[in-house]
Design a protein around this nucleic acid. Structure first.
Length: 255
DNA sequence: ATGGTTGCTTAGCAA
């Protein structure tokens, strides 16, 4: 079973590449972030034609996340469900083939110390509280998506340059550690200890050609899923060519 | 530190 996550940076701008990617990689479940599309403008027919069902939460211009699945998705939820007034579409969850899949787009955080940064840290806390309310770490569950946090120095091309940025700041990293402390493991680290594996490269400053990347897209798994992990791949080649997203897909293979 | 690129929406914001 293949479960993939990819920040597409606009589903309409990326439709041709997304269709080719779905056909080539063929995930059973694909979690997409940054759809940047209203429900009316979402290319539903093109994706359904490939054999995928679509569960999504939409927002015009910003955010938006989807779970595409070859099989039925049940118990679909579209928000953190905590009474906080929050119009940002950043979470969709569904159960597919007995696996609870939580697709998230964690806030970027802007500048450390800003209102956006406070929102990012609060959102991470809300996500952990949501897991505590609705799930247990002994369930087969994965949280995947654009977490907008690099866990460790080996996940950042130049850690000193990034330690004061929201993607690698100590408080972001602590928030990710707190989330994982609920009972989630970084699937990639179950299969490799290699440094320099990145999933995002800034469009600016020749970020990709110079390999100035960060690993901020993750698949986090509970113990019952960890036991089934066969492999985790970052599809770096998807960052190449014409009109790429600034993120590469991450693909989890389960027994 | 600055400047650099892409996408959405229409000059400026978000990433």
């Amino acid at each position: 079973m293949k479960i993939a996550t990819w920040n597409v940076n606009s589903i309409r701008a990326r439709l041709d590449r997304a269709v080719a990617w779905l056909q080539r990689t063929g995930p059973d479940v694909a979690c997409l972030q940054e759809l940047k599309s209203s429900e009316e403008d979402f290319p539903r027919a093109e994706i359904e034609a490939l054999g995928y069902r679509i569960q999504a939460t939409y927002q015009r211009t910003y955010n938006g996340v989807a779970i595409l699945s070859r099989h039925d998705a049940t118990a679909v939820v579209h928000s953190l469900d905590d009474g906080v007034e929050d119009p940002q579409a950043r979470l969709v969850a569904a159960t597919v083939d007995g696996l609870r899949v939580v697709c998230v787009y964690v806030p970027n955080g802007g500048v450390v110390g800003s209102d956006k940064y406070a929102y990012k840290l609060a959102w991470m806390g809300r996500l952990r509280a949501w897991l505590e309310r609705h799930h247990r770490p002994d369930e087969p569950l994965i949280v995947c998506g654009d977490l907008n946090i690099a866990p460790e120095a080996r996940d950042v091309h130049d850690p000193a340059l990034w330690e004061n940025e929201s993607l690698f700041h100590v408080d972001s990293r602590r928030a990710l550690q707190d989330l994982c402390a609920w009972g989630l493991q970084d699937a990639l680290r179950l299969v490799t200890q290699e440094a320099g594996i990145y999933s995002w490269w800034d469009y600016r400053m020749l970020g990709f050609p110079k390999n100035r990347g960060l690993r901020i897209d993750h698949v986090l798994v509970t113990e019952p899923v960890a036991r089934r992990v066969r492999g985790v791949t970052v599809e770096r080649n998807e960052r190449k060519g014409k009109q790429p997203s600034d993120h590469a897909p991450v693909v989890l293979e389960l027994d």
